[in-house]
Amino acid sequence: MSTEIIPYTIEEREDTGVNNAKLGIWLFLTSEVMLFGALFSTYIFLRVGTINWPVGSSFLSVPMAALNTVFLITSSITMVMAWLSLVDKNFSAYRKYMLLTILLGCAFLVVKYFEYTAKFEHNLYPSTNTFLGLYFTMTGLHVLHVIGGLIVNIYFLFPGSKMWESNPERFKNRIEIAGLYWHFVDLVWIFLFPVLYLL
């Protein structure tokens, strides 16, 4: 199944102004918005329906989460710099930024791992109360998204980067698409952080 014959894989269609992958990833992200939207809706619904709601920081560690926020936001800028390096046709800078993005993503996961184990040590489980149930479900789903993004990024750092030789324009588009997804993951965290930890 060759993909060469399909038009607008690289170049933009005149009347819509985008290429296929760009439209595709945005459509995918809209469904992600609805996925997390349903979870936030659950949060509001359950919180409004309850008599007392715990303050997040009474269970959770704000410093750790703040550190994680810094990691994710920094990884977002390295991601966008990786793309910009490709626009600048500077492949070695791309590799550097991409590696940094991946390392920051991993750092996020490590902190998250310590957070989870700290909860389990204090006998705080998803079944302990509704707030913790929401916390583990929402952050758990977010962690899965981070892992997904990391796999994609690692692919583009190592085996996928061969395309830079054969089809640089398409490779650059792919990094932009991967970046859009990665920024979205960051964006979800920007909301999760205050909603779960601070309110």
Binding site: S31, E32, M34, L35, F36, G37, A38, L39, T42, L46, Y125, P126, S127, T130, G133, L134, F136, T137, L141
Partner: peptide, 21 residues
């Protein structure tokens, strides 16, 4: 469809992790 995807995740959590969504 994502709304039910989220709901399915929560029902799985209710069944397997003992949450009370």
């Amino acid at each position: 469809f994502p709304a039910l995807e989220a709901a399915a995740v929560m029902q799985i959590m209710d069944r397997l992790a003992g949450t009370s969504f």
